[in-house]
């Protein structure tokens, strides 16, 4: 089973990299980009085939390593 994890900065945490990307888009002539928030995307190939167990395991992985809970949120999607 494949899992896809998106790690994003929490609301209220400044994202200077996202701001720089937004500025660069603006300078390229892309108008109307109000804000950019940069995050991380991870793909996990899991031996587990039970969706509930897989989700629980990836959730644990996110809390213990993949995301820093002080500044980041995460979202998990499973390919079923």
């Amino acid at each position: 089973m494949k899992a896809r994890v998106h790690v994003t900065l929490k609301t209220g945490v400044l994202d200077p990299q996202g701001k720089a990307v937004a500025h660069a888009l603006d300078s390229l002539g892309f108008e109307g980009v109000n804000d950019v928030r940069q995050g991380k995307y991870l793909e996990l190939d899991l031996a587990e085939n039970d969706p509930d167990k897989a989700h629980a395991a990836v959730d644990d992985m996110c809390r213990k390593l993949l995301a820093n809970m002080v500044i980041e949120n995460y979202a998990i999607e499973l390919d079923t």
Partner: peptide, 10 residues
Amino acid sequence: PGALMRNADL
């Protein structure tokens, strides 16, 4: 506590 993030001016 807390975290160390990318420098504000990158």
